[in-house]
């Protein structure tokens, strides 16, 4: 791989874990998304090296893997913070003011979407519909769901994790 791409080597034990998952698949065909999910669970994110490893193991072009990773907002090529904050920008949340909530998080954390705070504590993400439209606008911090969020609530939410 060209020097611009390989910037680090993969943790062998995490690699082994991923390989075990791939090996137990009945077929390698059509499993790219499942493997990417697993890889993100193991590594926390999907750096280039992980994508290249997956491409090799599944015998698909790296460009295809990157195509899928860049298509789904769930997949991230940046390491996430300890507390990943996801703001739902699906239609229901959007019309009920999700953008204002997102802007408040941006302001409070001094982050753009996709970035992580220097201390590694928070990362900011936007996603499409978590399936809780009745609670719109919805924010997730890690696995915890907050409903009917207003910009005024942002500070208090963050305080829980300080």
């Amino acid at each position: 791989m060209s020097s611009s791409v390989v910037s680090q080597t993969l943790d062998p034990s995490k690699c082994k874990q991923l390989d075990q998952f791939i090996d137990q698949l009945p077929s390698k065909k059509g499993e790219l998304i499942a493997v990417l999910h697993k890889a993100q669970e193991i590594f926390g994110y999907l750096p280039k090296e992980v994508q290249q490893h997956i491409a090799k193991r599944l015998e698909v072009p790296v460009a295809k893997v990157y195509g899928v990773v860049s298509f789904y907002s769930f997949f991230s090529m940046e390491p996430k913070g300890e507390h990943p904050i996801s703001i739902c920008m699906g239609t229901a949340c959007y019309v009920r003011g999700a953008e204002k909530v997102l802007n408040e998080f941006k302001k409070e954390l001094n982050l753009e979407v996709g970035e992580t705070t220097p201390d590694g504590k928070f990362s900011l993400l936007s996603l499409r519909c978590v399936g809780a439209c009745g609670l719109a606008p919805v924010v997730m911090v890690g696995e915890k769901v907050y409903g009917r969020v207003t910009p005024e609530m942002v500070k208090d939410i963050l305080k829980e994790y300080q």
Partner: peptide, 20 residues
């Protein structure tokens, strides 16, 4: 396998892996 569609919506484009 040099090219693939990447991103989505308005940002979708055909590109190389990692846009090298």
């Amino acid at each position: 396998g040099a090219l693939s569609g990447i991103n989505r919506g308005f940002d979708a484009v055909v590109a190389t892996a990692f846009e090298v």
